[in-house]
Design a protein around this nucleic acid. Structure first.
Lengths: 252, 252
DNA sequence: CGATGTCTTGATGAAATTCAACTCGAGTGG
DNA sequence: CCACTCGAGTTGAATTTCATCAAGACATCG
């Protein structure tokens, strides 16, 4: 039902005016490459919060760059149990694996209203051929995303509930910080406790109790859709989180 | 201590005589590309079971293709809890993420004696430039590995102990089958219960009890380092595993 | 104002961890 | 050749963590 109608907000501007590139979180590209990316971009698109950007079963689908908003990749078991694999933030490339991977697919859903840059999947090969740098960049992005899933697997497999929550808060805060999205010591935080339970591999109730406890201990605060890290040191210690400074990422 | 001495067994042969390519599990390459891969390959290497192929902390490291044997990628928390991220089987490319990903690294350890084809990491860029197909292939491999980690995250996050074991057995059996390594209805199975606990996110004791139960129910049998799936249907149902036929993978 | 979504809390039970032994075979050194 | 150790697998019991069930609070929204 939410598959066709255009979204409400204004879409991304031309690449040369890209808000993301100006923010300094991404690597520079040559004028040549920039022109190619602009021409490679088939269209732009806005989709409302909650819509499915990519279906878990159907292959194909487009290739996107998330320009604004939050989304997540997920998998579900046939009885409905859902695991979120990772969150997608502005600048992330979406839908690359659908092209390649064996086995079952994953779905992608928008958390907030999102705007997207759309690329034709069958142009990917031409991109590799004509602009090897960009091909290299795409591999970079794929490897980085795998690194994030690696971290989430360590979290789900080996950390207890409090450690998991602490890890997630640190991780998201740092990523948003890298994107320049910290304002007045807090970041926008549009996900609810069900999302958090689903990425951490916990039940909703247990997630709630754990977060309540951490908040009451003064480690963090979530209010009005924003997140404050009230005691980042303690969160970091609890999560056993190590702050490798995030590098600039490529941006398609 | 196990960093320098050469291993015992004979290493991989020239690429033109590669045992893996002949097995039919991998995509064909042109004579041109084959020659490049051969020249790109800096050396071959054998390492004994249990040795560390890549350190969890140190960056750098080489790029390998696993030619024979089993290995695994892992991460550990500072108090020693270990999570295996995925198992590496012949044909898998090793060490790609070290080049790219932010954040903490992962380690790689050999389960059995292994033999490896070694590629210089700084030649990767030239590969992308001169042979875009191969660059594309590398992205393919990265995306496929991410898909495997995705599956493992779903397993660790949402399946119970019995389902996790069933999933792992199906998954590994199918991969080995794809490589043509099934003999007399069984496959070599060199990992121990600690490895299994470490990839499934379970304790050793609980893993043992769960596997014992499944074995006694006649679902599988592990004996003398080999694995039989005695009731694949039941395992598949238990794991909620869907058998997307594995495609041919690229091979570097 | 009723309906809905999200957050919250307590009670109960199931699942998994931890602790502690014990078995069995494969070395290994006296 | 025989203790002895060591790694891997096995098992029972006690304990902890987490899931499930049930219900209520609160805000938003048509």
């Amino acid at each position: 039902m939410d598959t066709l109608q255009p979204g409400p907000a204004p879409g991304p501007p031309p690449c040369t005016a890209c808000r993301l590139r100006k923010a300094g979180a991404f690597t520079a590209v040559s004028a040549d490459e920039m022109a190619f990316i602009e021409s490679f971009r088939a269209s732009t698109l806005n989709r409302p919060a909650g819509s499915t950007l990519m279906h878990e079963q159907k292959p194909g689908g487009k290739l996107f760059t998330l320009y604004a908003g939050w989304a997540f990749r997920y998998k579900t078991l046939s009885d409905g149990r859902r695991q979120i694999l990772n969150f997608l933030l502005p600048g992330d490339l979406i839908g690359l694996q659908q092209e390649f991977s064996d086995g079952a697919m994953h779905g992608i859903e928008a958390v907030t209203d999102v705007s997207l840059c759309v690329f034709p999947r069958d142009g990917l090969w031409e991109l590799f051929r004509r602009y090897p740098n960009l091909g290299y960049d795409i591999t970079w992005l794929a490897a980085r995303e795998e690194g994030m899933v690696d971290d989430n697997l360590l979290t789900a497999g080996r950390r207890n509930a409090a450690e998991r929550v602490a890890m997630l808060l640190m991780h998201l805060y740092r990523r948003l910080e890298r994107l320049g999205l910290v304002q007045d010591g807090s970041v926008e935080f549009p996900i609810n406790q069900q999302h958090i339970a689903d990425i951490l591999g916990l039940s909703l109730v247990h997630t709630n109790k754990t977060m309540r406890r951490l908040q009451q201990l003064g480690l963090h605060e979530i209010r009005n859709g924003r997140l404050w890290l009230r005691n980042p040191k303690a969160l970091q210690r609890l999560a056993d989180y190590y702050d490798a400074p995030l590098r600039r990422a490529p941006l398609l």
